[in-house]
Design a protein around this nucleic acid. Structure first.
Lengths: 225, 225, 225, 225
DNA sequence: TATGAATGAGCCTTCATTCAT
DNA sequence: GATGAATGAAGGCTCATTCAT
């Protein structure tokens, strides 16, 4: 269970230890990551209140006390978990939206694709679920997420939608007014999957494709894909 | 706080109790209702795991043991709560949709209005929140809700959307394929309100109006409101 | 360990229950008293920090959770314990000292006798030990004890000593200035007993007799006892 | 706070470390002393059970593991602490009492003065407090202290008091029989200060002066101060 | 020798559930 | 039926001690 030291590539330490694929003692970063990964599993499965730190420790392969070397308490661990995995996707969205020369539909397509590939089915989806479920009881999390993700995402969509509407690419300025309408089906997909996918799976890609058409106001013939 | 059994000197005790202005001993149905109402408060505020039956009992004005006379355990109380408040709205939706002569837009409008008046701001919204949050850990609830509400609602929207598309009222058959797209903004509204309304309130009605336009594929001029 | 409800051979249940020596279900007062008695044992033996509530519960014959029905937490239990056993002795001292006609020596003798019979060897001595040991970490306790016992006792001694000095019964007004000098040997007896009595027992009565002589300034011949 | 080992560029490191004004790497004795000093702080403030070795290590400027290089465990550290600071004062008392030519009152005065200057307000007072508080749970300490200090001090007082009584310097042989009576006010001063000095400070010197008069059986006129 | 991260037994406290009244 | 005191299993957190470096 506990990795043996493996003082590796030293000149001649401890025999042939180096070439072994053996477990080395994890660095603090690795341990922290292991704890967070375990915490995601346990919190996602049970919710905050019902999650047991015993389980987190066991999954992370550390002693219970070790958790407290990395996080002051259960709530801090939870909050750290929810604040640790957000940015990269948003940055890619920002990058996408920066090119004003692109047609709105292309940018929105790109964002939808990112959602399909980088969120659905990944840990980020589980984080999202946790934020939806537990956010109301963790104002700090809700505010953080609103500030770091929601408000930025909203601005991006608002800009794109407004520009697309002015250019005549979009039939309506609805999304410029309420960018939430752009994200609503994505949120719905996440919620659906968490609730019903066991017995009524959702074809997320197909639904998003329909959403795209609706959003762009295309008539059905117009859509390729 | 709670009416003592009134051990007093009533010449004709307990007979015409109803017409007495004094607090009468609650009937079982009233007690059950009080417990469920209290449970909604407590579960909605804390989630299932963190909710304390002590609080439920106190809010309901009964002793803790009394809860167990009405529900076998905490989970049963929770499940009873989530299965008790769904039907009436759905029935009204079914009624609305039954009139095939109505234009699709009118029916959808009606449904949206029902949502705005009968869900948002009511206990039903809190139930919905609970289902979203806790559903994944209560398969029974998720299945029940899917069977009783989701699948029916989906069928209704599918029918209306298909009919509207055939009649040319809708520019796209997206919603016929994925009725979730119709409900997505409503779900989003509920989630938003639970997470962000404290510091970033959402104008649900305005958003729904935008959703309506987008859905119907109207150009902006076409919408009166 | 836990008194069984005694569903026994009562022909006419519940009637003649009183005269049976059988264990009846303890009243709340009895339970509270049992908890406090157990707490005294456990705290006296281990000190506050090292005392285990498990042991208290076991000694009191109740479940661990029951403690929390009577006291909000460990500290409250401890404080309740230390504030529960003081008054009667002080009242008797006050009664003794009220009679100004008595010679000072008689009153002081009476107080010393009370100490020997009502404190030494009783639970009050253990309480005293706890106050001495733990008081510095429980300001509330120290203040309470100072207010309720120390300051009153000091006033009493001061009055008696001053009066005795004026009357020529006492050779010195030392005790009128520092009544602590009257109590010092008593405190010392308690401390000695807690530390050394195992291997060097102290004849408290004899020491107190010597203290009396010293205090009264008698030459040795004068005191028979 | 604590001297970092000073890993700097010393041309001639570690040789004439003593005469360098800079902080040198502490010797083992210094480290031991630092640990004991820190332990006194921490144990005095919290008592044995509630004291944290973390705090001791931090105050001593060493790592927690280092404590275990110097003391096998917490209890051994505590015991070492309580056995380390006693002797010098006792030796001075012994020296004082050795001169049989001195009048008893002079020797007793000397001892009282030593107490006032060498105990009250110093670390020795804190040690004394710890012995009083924790002694009952540390028989080894109590026995050590009894053997090394108490019994010796008692013998000294007994000798002086007996001699003084024979010579007619003391009106009573009370203290010859119970030397505890001599120390009682000193003990009382220590206990009082630990419990009440925050809100009811004690003038220790004045009290001891009164004690002296009482002890010597002087009438008030006789003592100047 | 010194470090401090890691361990895990132990303890206070909570709360769903029971049951005597 | 209704009560609420009592129960005791469970979980968050602490901290003395260990051990790889």
């Amino acid at each position: 269970m506990i990795p043996k030291p493996t003082t590796k590539e030293q000149a001649v330490p401890r025999k042939g230890a180096a070439e072994l694929a053996e477990r080395k003692r994890p660095t603090q970063d690795e341990r922290r990551a292991a704890i967070l990964a375990a915490a995601l599993d346990v919190f996602a499965e049970n919710g905050f209140a019902a999650a047991r730190l015993d389980d987190v420790a066991q999954k992370a392969g550390v002693a219970k006390g070790t958790l407290y070397l990395y996080f002051p308490d259960k709530q801090a661990l939870f909050e750290a978990l929810l604040q640790g995995l957000v940015s990269p996707v948003l940055q890619r969205i920002e990058a996408l939206s920066a090119d004003a020369a692109l047609p709105a539909s292309a940018i929105l397509d790109g964002i939808l694709t990112l959602f399909q590939t980088e969120i659905i089915g990944t840990n980020r989806e589980r984080i999202l679920r946790l934020i939806i479920s537990e956010g109301p009881r963790f104002p700090k999390i809700a505010e953080f997420y609103h500030r770091e993700v929601i408000s930025k995402g909203r601005e991006i969509i608002r800009t794109i939608a407004a520009r697309g509407y002015e250019r005549g690419e979009l039939r309506s300025d609805a999304m410029a007014k309420f960018p939430q309408l752009f994200f609503a089906p994505l949120l719905t997909a996440v919620v659906w999957r968490s609730l019903f996918s066991r017995f009524d799976p959702l074809d997320v890609n197909a639904m998003i494709e329909c959403h795209r058409k609706l959003m762009l106001g295309q008539k059905d013939e117009e859509s390729p894909k």
